[in-house]
């Protein structure tokens, strides 16, 4: 065990770094996608609501692994053969696109729920003061919604962090892929996967703790 750590520790740590990089960018894009479709789902416009619903339904209805193959192989193939345009996606780019879309759809649902949990009177009070809809959303509704959403959002972030491992199938050298390599070299399956499991566990525990702190910080009932 110790031998593996000293010998392959740096490799595994670097792979963890790649996992975190991929998760980090995905979470940023997912937040933007989620916010966009979450708001689209609640505005008073049927067309917008339906578009948001379709997006969420499609992403939720397709396994991530299929989405990953589709983005990494399917789309460049289609670009080349149909539009005649050579699109090259790196495994990292394809991975980020997949995770962003996937996490974004779930975020959209969380954000929609969060917005709907804010009492109707808040929007009415804001509008009655002459604030436009989107300003009211940004300054009054979302800051309140975010507080109820934080546990679900962090939960979703953790799921996405774990989902990076699915992207090992398109060859991105994240933690699981690197670990496979280490196992191939050492034949020490048990030890390597135990180490990898513990690495995930540590990162996710830290994230959960951070979430708790954030949740407390943002609560306005604290005093």
């Amino acid at each position: 065990m110790l031998e593996i750590i000293t010998k392959f520790g740096p490799t595994l740590l670097e792979a963890m770094g790649k996992t975190l990089t991929m998760a980090f960018y995905s979470l940023i894009f997912a937040s933007i996608i989620g916010l966009f479709f979450g708001v689209l789902a609640v505005v008073r416009n049927k067309v917008c609501n339906v578009i948001a619903q379709i997006f969420v339904d499609i992403i939720r209805g397709v396994p991530m692994i299929v989405l990953a193959y589709f983005v990494f192989f399917g789309i460049p193939y289609a670009c080349k053969n149909i539009i005649g345009f050579n699109l090259t996606l790196s495994a990292l780019e394809a991975g980020i696109i997949c995770l962003s879309l996937n996490c974004g759809a779930y975020m959209a649902e969380i954000i929609r729920g969060g917005i709907q949990s804010v009492p109707k009177g808040q929007m009415e009070a804001a509008r009655s003061l002459g604030l436009p809809y989107l300003t009211s959303m940004r300054k009054i509704i979302l800051p309140q919604a975010i507080r109820t959403m934080i546990p679900s959002i962090i939960n979703q972030f953790i799921i996405t962090l774990k989902d990076t491992s699915i992207l090992s199938i398109i060859g991105f050298p994240e933690l699981v892929n690197s670990a496979k390599g280490v196992v191939a070299l050492t034949f020490k399956s048990f030890q390597v996967w135990a180490i990898v499991g513990i690495m995930y566990l540590i990162v996710i525990t830290i994230l959960s703790k951070l979430a708790k702190v954030l949740e407390r910080r943002l609560s306005y009932d604290r005093k």
């Binding site: 009415e124 009070a125 309140q144 507080r147």
Partner: peptide, 13 residues
């Protein structure tokens, strides 16, 4: 046009 509601509707945050 100012409006005052039954439930106050102050912004809690």
């Amino acid at each position: 046009i100012g409006m005052v509601f039954q439930q106050f509707n102050l912004f809690p945050h």
